[in-house]
Design a binder for these strands. Structure first.
Length: 463
RNA sequence: GGCGCGAUGGCCGAGAGGUUAGGCACGGGUCUGCAAAACCUGCUAGAGCGGUUCAAUUCCGCUUCGCGCCUCCA
């Protein structure tokens, strides 16, 4: 079945058909490494993770590029304030970013180019734009893109170009530009940049923001590629400007499809430091939530709908995940050491089908999860389950987890002495020595664990 | 002001022009030395006002409310 996505360019659903063979080449806007990324950032990366995982599930080959913006106003300011060279300063946050991706079980992209490693490629594009009359130099050594020279400017954001000229905010210090809406390809050297400086045919300076994405996508994906994604806030100006630069320089289509995810809110409000509802991933982990629970929260709302992040729903997720874990544990238990899988039971086949139909419809994750939980409900009724059937179900679970990334329960690391106590308690119960059994339960509780009796023996869970 | 998105049961959140979404919470039951968990089961909503239709929560219009972008925020 075909995979339909909502293309921001056409503002309508379209079937995703790669330009070449079965290979989807996608560019996903990545973090600016001036600080720890916040959960709003990870909402976007989570959407991209679901997208790439679904593409792979569908049998597409995927090449994903995600950039690391390691030179801009914020990184320069941070490095100056910390007294560290830019490279050392940003390295800390690059490392943190990759740690966070692991915590959230986000699959790595194929390429993570850093802006500072691609300066020559950026300069090459700007030179090309000069030869086409689509770049000009201003008095302060900056280079701008004249939007008047690109008639299609505004096609992604659907801008009213006439309205742009008279309206909106215009910074007062931009008198060097021919048109207030022109954007910087290259920024002339300013003393505030310290030693963050590169040589270029137009003199010393540093790249503008948008040019890095044009350069990196071209380097790894070619002049035209399939899919470009990011947060809605990137539609304008960032992606609009990328289109102008890339198509203006190369004379061919930049990206065939565009997908944008909505923002995340916290407690119904825009995340901001002044409201005190601004969270990095690390801060939420410190409150005792796991990466898996946060993954479930971030992935569970359709990407084009704003996601309201609350600790109440994070707690609800814990219960929902426990229900899934309980079911999967029963399935694995029933499968035992079975090595030959039987037929997938009809309820499981139905689950698989409905799940796929939902995800094929512009990544309708809520529909997919509905199918999953319906499957759990039917599956629970199907017990006791023979080992061949159970193995087939278990295999399906692994397949679905290749998309969801939260179905596999974390391995419990129970201290050995607690296991001994739990076993001693079983013995005490058998001997009807309930006083001793209760004493052991209390001791286990005191150690911060709970013990639950199940048909397959006692289970220890951390409180 | 311009462009765009949304409003569903206690909370979160889907699809479909007529037939159960789902999750959490809550009530009932099964199981159980106790307890917990688990499982089964119940809970039938769709901002307001008009319109189209045999039929609308679903399509159209208006209103109200919320949110986003409008030159370097995912």
């Amino acid at each position: 079945m075909s995979f339909k996505i909502y293309n921001t360019m056409s503002r309508s659903p379209e079937e995703l058909v790669p330009l070449k063979d079965n290979h989807v080449r996608m560019y996903t806007c990545g973090p600016t490494v001036y600080n720890y990324a916040h959960i709003g950032n990870y909402r976007a990366y989570m959407f991209e993770d679901l997208l790439r995982r679904w593409l792979k599930y569908k049998g597409f080959k995927v090449t994903q590029v995600q950039n690391l913006t390691d030179v801009d106003d914020k990184t320069i300011r941070g490095s100056r304030e910390s007294g560290l060279p830019l490279r050392d300063y940003t390295q800390k946050y690059k490392d943190a970013f990759f740690e966070d991706l692991k915590t959230l079980n986000i699959e790595p992209a194929e390429f993570y180019p850093a802006a500072t490693d691609c300066i020559p490629e950026m300069i090459a594009i700007i030179e090309k734009l000069f030869t086409k009359g689509r770049a000009y130099k201003s008095d302060d050594g900056s280079v701008y893109f004249p939007i008047d020279k690109f008639p299609e400017y505004g096609k992604l954001a659907r801008l009213d170009r006439e309205g742009m000229r008279s309206g909106a905010r215009v910074a007062q210090d931009e008198y060097d530009k021919e048109n207030a809406a022109d954007f910087a390809l290259w920024k002339g050297y300013d003393e505030a940049d310290g030693d963050v400086v590169w040589d270029s045919p137009w003199g010393k300076g540093r790249p503008g923001w948008h040019i890095e994405c044009s350069a990196m996508s071209m380097k790894y994906l070619g002049e035209t590629f399939d899919l470009h994604t990011g947060g809605v806030d990137n539609i304008f100006p960032h992606h609009e400007d990328e289109i102008a630069q890339s198509e203006g320089a190369n004379g061919c289509l930049y990206s065939k499809y565009w997908m944008h995810c909505a923002h995340l809110q916290v407690d119904g409000k825009k995340m901001s430091k002044s409201l005190g509802n601004f969270y990095t991933l690390r801060e939420i982990l410190e409150k005792g939530f796991t990466g898996r629970e946060i993954r479930y929260e971030l992935i569970g709302t359709h990407y084009r709908q704003s996601l309201n992040f609350t600790f109440a729903s994070l707690n609800a997720n814990r219960a929902a995940l426990a229900r899934l874990d309980e079911f999967y544990a029963k399935v694995k238990d029933a499968a035992g050491n079975e090595t030959s899988a039987g037929e997938l039971p009809s309820w499981a086949g139905e689950l698989e089908k409905r799940f796929a139909e939902a995800l094929d419809d512009d990544l309708n994750i809520a529909g997919g999860l509905g199918a999953l939980f319906d499957g759990v409900h039917e599956g629970n009724k199907a017990f006791p389950m023979n080992s061949k059937t159970a193995l087939a179900v278990s295999n399906l679970w692994k397949k679905l987890d290749s998309v969801l990334g939260f179905l596999m329960p974390p391995a419990a690391e129970v201290p050995a002495e607690l296991i001994q106590m739990a076993e001693a308690r079983v013995a005490a119960k058998k001997a009807k020595n309930f006083a001793e059994a209760d004493r052991l339960r209390d001791a286990i509780t005191a150690a911060g664990w709970t013990v639950q009796d199940t048909p397959t023996g006692p289970k220890l869970k951390k409180v």
